[in-house]
Write a protein that binds this DNA or RNA. Sequence first.
RNA 1: GUGCCCAUGGUGUAACGGUUAACACAGCGGUUUGUGGUACCGCUAAUUCGGGUUCGAUUCCCGAUGGGCACCCCA
Length: 438
Amino acid sequence: MKKQKIKKYSLLKGFKDIVPEDQFYWNFVLDKLSKCADAYGFEKIDLPIVEEYGLFARSVGTDTDIVTKEMFAFETLGKEKVALRPEGTAGAVRAYVEHGMMNKRKPVKMYYEGPMFRYEKPQAGRFRQFHQFGCEVFGEDDPIVDAQIIYMCYQIFDELNIPIEIKINSIGCNTCRNHYLKALKLYLKKYKSKLCVDCNKRYNKNILRILDCKEKKCQEIVADAPQIVDHLCTDCNTHFVKTLEYLEESQIAYTLNPFIVRGLDYYNRTAFEIFCKEEDGSQSALGGGGRYDSLVRMLGGQKTPAIGFALGIERIVSRLRDMYEKTPADERKFEIPTSKTCDVFIAQLGDGARKKVLVLFEKIRREGFLVGESVSKTALKQQMEEADRLKAKMCLIVGQKEIMDDTILIRDMESGNQEIVPSGQILKVLRRRLDSLK
RNA sequence: GUGCCCAUGGUGUAACGGUUAACACAGCGGUUUGUGGUACCGCUAAUUCGGGUUCGAUUCCCGAUGGGCACCCCA
C-alpha cells in the first residue's frame, strides 16, 4: 500500500481564517461597534475591496510606505491597474463624491467595516489581511465634531473594558505645516550628522517621521526640536484649542503628543491615535484618525471638510479576549457567549419518528425557539449527548410509542423530569416552560 | 529590507543517538440496541523537506521551506 502524497494547500502568509470558535468574540466586537456607530448617527456603507490603484496612491500619498511597498496592486485581465484597499477612507471619499452625497444634509456620516490588505511582514497583531472598522464625517469643520469623534472612540473602548490611552496632536493645515517643516529642517540640520541612518533618509523624504524615531540619540535631539503646535496659524490654533476645550469638558483622559503625525498624507489639523495601556511596544496601536479637509476636493469633489477614524478589529478582539479571560467571572461587566445554546433539542428514535422530525423541527423553529437537532444520529444516547453539549434546556423525544399515541415526551434537562404531552399542545407547553425559566 | 527564536497526531505537551515515538484534550465507536452531564474500554492520528556525521538520526550538523517575534511602519 503506497501512501499517495496529495498536495495540501495552506493559508497564504499573513492571512488568517476566523474559525467558528473565534466568531463569538469577533461578533461581539462588531456588534458593539456598529451599534455605537448607529447611535452616533452613522449609516453603514459597504465599499468594494478592489479599487483603482490611483485612488489609493493619490489619497494615501505616493511617498508613503503603504503605497510604495505595501499595496496588493495588480493588473486585471482588462489591463486596469487596481489594488486591494489598504485602508477605508479613500473608498469612502470616492463613494461620497460618486453618489453626490454633497447634496445630502450635512454632516454626512458613514461607517464601514471589512478587510484591508497590506503586504507587510506579519507579526503579532499584524497581518496582510486585517479588518478595520471606520467612521467618517463629511461636511463639518466645527471642532466639536473632532472632539465628538475622539470622545466616541473613548467610549467604545470603555464599553469594551479595554484600557486605552488617546494621544492627540494637531498637524495644522498646509500653510502652517510648511512653516513648521522649514523650522524643523533648520533645527535638525545642525544635528544631521548625529542622527541615525534611517533618520538621515527621513530628513529628505519624510522629515516628520524623525520625530518618532526610537533611537535614543535621535530622541534626545528631537526633544528640543520645535513643535508643530507652536507653529500653527491662527485658525488651526483656534481649532485645536477648541477641540481640546470640548474634550476637557467631556472629562475623558487624553494626552497631547506632538509626535503623532500619522502615516497617511491626507491628514491635517487634528490627528490622534489610540494605544493600548499597559502594553509597551509592539502593535499596541488599536486605531487612529484625524481630519482630512482637502481629500474630498483632491478626489474630484467640492471642497468639503471631513474627519474620521479607523480601528483595528483583530487587535481589539485580541485585547478584549485577554482582558476578558483574565477578569474573574463575577467581576465582568458583560458576558460574551462562547458556545452555542438552544432552548429545545429534538431527539428521534426509530424510522417512524425520523420521518416526522424535519417537519417538527421547522414548526418549532418558526415559533421563535432556538432548536437543536442531530437528525443524522440514530442512537438516543448520542442525541442526548448533543443536547447536553448544546446546553439545551429541554429535550423533546419522539419514538415509536409517541408516534403511535400522537404525543411527545418532553424532558427537562436540568431536573431530568419527563412529561408526556399531546403533540398538538407541544408549542403551548414549550412556551409556558421557557417563560417559567426566565 | 535587517536581526532573533522555533519546527513531533487536530490541539497542548513528552522522550531517547538504538525495538511497536509516550501522555492529555478533542474526534469517532463501544460498555446488550428508549435517555445526557461521571466512569471504563477501544479506534483514528505525528517526528516539515533535502543533504551530512553515524553501524544506526525524530534526536547532532548544514541547507531549504514553513511558522513565530522584534526593528521599520502601522490597525
